[in-house]
Design a protein around this nucleic acid. Structure first.
Lengths: 149, 149
DNA sequence: CTCAAGTATATGAGAGTTCAACTAAATTGG
DNA sequence: CCAATTTAGTTGAACTCTCATATACTTGAG
C-alpha cells in the first residue's frame, strides 16, 4: 500500500518545492538578466575556473557541474560559440576531450560572479540564521549521500 | 564590495544545489517514466484536483502550481491535447478562462500519485529524521516569506 | 591479433521554458 | 462616456534539456 504523506509532510513538501523553485528562479533570472547565461552555464564556468589549467575532461566536468553528459556537450557547444570555452583533443585517450576555459570565459565569469553571489545571499544566507544554515547543510548532505550512491 | 561566501557557506551552497537537483531529477525521471508527464504537469493536475469543481481560473492555477502564466498556458494546451484538462470561458470576466480537470485527467493523476509519493519518500522523507524534516520546513517557510513577498 | 564489449562524447529530434509581444476585455479618471 | 491604463491570457521564437542513437576509440578475452 502507498504510504501517503500526512498533512504535516504535505505542507513541508510543498514548502520545499516552493522555496527551492523560488531560489532557482531568482538565480536564473539574475544571471540571465545581468550576465546573459543560465545558471547551468555559470556552474560549468565555475568548475572549469577551479580546475588545474582551467581545463577538464568532459566527463569530469559533467560530474563537477552536476550536469548530464549530453547537457554538458550541448552547453559547451554554446559556450564555444561565445568564445568562453574551447575543446582540445585528449592525447592519452582518443575518445576523450578537454574543455578549456578561455580568458574571455574567465572574464565573463569574473564579471558575473559578484551579482550572482549577492543573489545567493539574498535568496538563502541572509534569510537564515547560522544555526539554520548548519541544519540545512546536514540535510543536504544526507540527501546527497542517499541519492548519489 | 561583494560579500563572498566563506568556505563553509560555499560547501553548504554546493550541497544545497546538488541535493535539490538530485531530488528534482528523481521526481522528473519517475513521473516521466511511469506516468509520461513532467513534474510541472503533475503539480497542475494536483492543484486542479483540489479545487472546487476541479476547476480554477488560469491565474490562480498558475499561483497554486507555482508556474508562470506563460508556462501554464503552454502546459494547459498540452494537457488539453491529452484530454486531461479542458478550458471554459469565464462568464463574469470576458478576459478570463477556467481550466477544468476532466475525468480522464483525474484518472491519470490517480494512477500517477502512488509512484510519485513513493519517490518523494525515497528522495526526502525517508532520508531525514522527523527533527530534520521539521527544521527543513522552517527553513523553507523563511525562504518563502522572503522571496515571495 | 582480432573481435566483442565497453567507454567517452556528440548529435538530432522532441518537448518544455522563457521572454517579449500581442489581443481582448475591464477599469479608472476626467 | 471615452481615452488611458491595467489585467487576463495567449502566442511565437529562441533556447535549453532529455532521451535515444550514433560515432569513434579502447580494452580484454581467447
Amino acid at each position: 500500500m502507498t504510504r501517503w504523506l500526512d498533512a504535516d509532510e504535505q505542507h513541508t513538501w510543498r514548502n520545499f518545492l516552493a522555496a527551492t523553485q523560488l531560489i532557482n528562479e531568482a538565480l536564473d533570472r539574475q544571471l540571465q538578466r545581468d550576465a546573459s547565461m543560465p545558471h547551468t552555464y555559470y556552474m560549468i564556468l565555475v568548475a572549469l575556473s577551479e580546475a588545474p589549467g582551467r581545463s577538464m575532461r568532459m566527463s569530469e566536468l559533467a560530474a563537477r557541474a552536476q550536469s548530464s553528459q549530453s547537457r554538458l556537450s550541448h552547453a559547451v557547444a554554446r559556450l564555444e560559440e561565445r568564445g568562453w570555452v574551447r575543446r582540445e583533443r585528449c592525447p592519452d585517450d582518443g575518445r576523450g576531450s578537454f574543455a578549456v576555459l578561455t580568458d574571455a570565459g574567465f572574464a565573463a565569469l569574473a564579471a558575473a560572479a559578484p551579482g550572482h553571489v549577492e543573489e545567493v545571499r539574498r535568496s538563502l544566507f541572509d534569510v537564515l540564521t547560522p544555526e539554520q544554515v548548519h541544519r540545512l547543510d546536514e540535510i543536504c548532505v544526507a540527501v546527497r549521500n542517499t541519492l548519489e550512491g
